[in-house]
């Protein structure tokens, strides 16, 4: 079973992730944990020093963390973005699309199930900054090439 699924080459950050409140008091911390009610944009002045942002999903049905992840990536954050909490395999591919590159689910994944979920979608309809070219781009590439 997989307890930490990671799509990065660098070493995982060993420091515990601080809450946003205690992070603001400790200027040298490199890991912080966002709760659904926190504003991801409060972290933007600190992106250079951050190596890990954990985004907590207390319940899989609360989707605020998806927007938080995209906001951090759109601002240029290139450290580790980890989904923690009630993270289920059926959300994996969408989380990847929003910029998450590691997953520490409360209940470990079955590796085959996680692999199947991640390889489910042959293409995507939207541009989300994850580097995948959306279908509309592929359509018009194909037309201009041929």
């Amino acid at each position: 079973m997989v307890e930490l699924l990671r799509f990065r080459e660098d070493e995982p950050v060993a420091d515990p992730a601080l809450t946003v409140d205690s992070f603001s008091d400790q200027s040298n911390a490199s890991a912080v944990r966002l709760e659904p009610g926190d504003d991801a944009r409060d972290l933007l002045p600190f992106l250079d020093q951050l190596r890990l942002v954990e985004i907590n999903f207390p319940s899989f049905g609360d989707g605020r963390g998806y927007s938080a992840a995209r906001i951090l990536r759109e601002a240029g954050f290139d450290g580790e973005l980890r989904a923690v909490g009630d993270v289920l395999v059926d959300q994996l591919s969408y989380m990847r699309r929003c910029g998450f590159d590691s997953f520490a689910p409360e209940k470990p994944f079955n590796p085959a199930g996680a692999q199947a979920a991640l390889s489910r979608w042959p293409q995507v309809y939207q541009a989300t900054g994850d580097g995948r070219r959306p279908i509309w781009a592929l359509r018009h590439d194909a037309q201009s090439n041929g």
Binding site: F60, G61, D62, G63, Y66, S67, R70, Q91, S93, Y94, M95, R97, C98, W121, V124, Y125, Q126, T128, I135, W136
Partner: peptide, 13 residues
Amino acid sequence: RQWSSFHPEFLAL
């Protein structure tokens, strides 16, 4: 329709 289908940010509104 295409934009909203499987939009990864908006599946747990």
